[in-house]
Design a binder for these strands. Structure first.
Length: 223
DNA sequence: CGGGTTTGACCAGCGC
DNA sequence: GCGCTGGTCAAACCCG
């Protein structure tokens, strides 16, 4: 089924105390059809995605067990979000996996990067403040703010502990849309930009330029 | 002049 | 309760 297979194993120790935003892997997708074996320790689940800034067109497919896990193991605070689509032309692909699940990605060409992270799904701390779903990915880029099709306004910047690079805070400029994103550089590798999205857009990207086109069922469920 | 950015102040959550 | 830290606010500033 696949032309290439890569094994991605995740190291539990690196994200033991984190919740939704643990970042770990960043793997090149060289061929037009690549199969990835996702794996991690039993207490964690893997989360794989193509960054929207990079993915252009493609198909994603998963194994039986992967599909089953996706149904069963979406954490309650993320329920209602669609993490996976088997046939989509919009560039947001997310998939949940467990141990030894296979995910296949078909691309229309070029070279992209698959971002893979892992998180504890069953022991996410309850916080007093209800948080919107958060998702993040890592991109190797000189540019801090990647063009994801939405318009953002910066509302804050903060130097966070143990990092030499400040974290920037952005809000979607669309009225009534409360989506936020954080942009920071990885302390260990400043070439990597970590973008974290919080919440879901209630509108399509670049709405001002493309109002007439009917939005597809997929355009507003994620970001 | 309007919209976006900067930046210090403020606030809330959390650990001790 | 206190101090630390991350997240947000908002006034000042910048720029087209």
């Amino acid at each position: 089924m696949s032309s290439t297979a890569s094994q991605i194993m995740l190291n539990q120790n690196l994200f033991e105390d984190q919740d939704l935003s643990s970042q770990l892997g960043f793997f090149p997708i060289h061929s037009n059809f690549t199969s990835f074996q996702l794996g991690c320790s039993q207490s964690l689940k893997t989360l794989a995605m193509l960054p929207p800034s990079l993915a252009v067109d493609g198909t994603i497919a998963i194994s039986e067990s992967f599909a089953q896990k996706q149904k069963e193991e979406i954490p309650p605070q993320l329920a209602g979000s669609q993490f996976f689509s088997s046939q989509r032309s919009t560039p947001n692909y997310w998939a949940w996996g467990g141990m030894n699940d296979t995910m296949s990605i078909k691309r229309s060409g070029g070279e992209d990067y698959l971002g893979v992270s892992a998180m504890k799904m069953k022991k996410i701390k309850a916080r007093r403040k209800v948080r919107e779903p958060r998702f993040c990915f890592k991109t190797m880029s000189d540019i801090d703010v990647l063009d994801d099709g939405y318009k953002w306004r910066k509302y804050g910047q903060k130097v966070v502990k143990n990092t030499q690079h400040p974290r920037s805070y952005y809000r979607c400029t669309q009225d009534n849309c409360r989506v936020k994103k954080r942009v920071e550089r990885l302390a260990e590798d400043p070439r990597m930009v970590i973008t974290t999205y919080e919440g879901r857009h209630i509108h399509s990207p670049s709405q001002d330029e493309d109002d007439s086109q009917a939005s597809s069922q997929f355009t507003n469920f994620f970001w």
